[in-house]
């Protein structure tokens, strides 16, 4: 299935993947990031159970230096 992650198109994502599975797939440390799915926050506590759907738009953010 297809996802849009941080504005980029991703194809060939396995159907039924969870947010946690996607983070592993992308090699992202789940403790240091936050995820928004179709404009809604995905609570960290639901990463393991939240199953993604074809066409989902995700934002994955972290903290960087700023004033």
């Amino acid at each position: 299935m297809n996802l849009v992650i941080n504005g980029q198109d991703y194809h060939d994502i396995p159907v039924g993947i969870t947010v946690a599975g996607l983070l592993d797939h992308l090699e992202l440390p789940r403790k240091k990031i936050a995820v928004e799915r179709n404009m809604e926050i995905v609570p960290k506590s639901t990463f393991d159970s939240a199953v993604l759907s074809d066409g989902d738009r995700l934002e994955i953010i972290h903290f960087i230096g700023g004033g």
Binding site: L28, I60, I61, H62, I64, G67
Partner: peptide, 18 residues
């Protein structure tokens, strides 16, 4: 203070502020 930005998906091993 910190800013909030998209993670760099092309380099997930990049050092992070935290």
């Amino acid at each position: 203070t910190v800013a909030v930005r998209r993670v760099n998906l092309s380099n997930p091993a990049e050092p992070m502020l935290v």
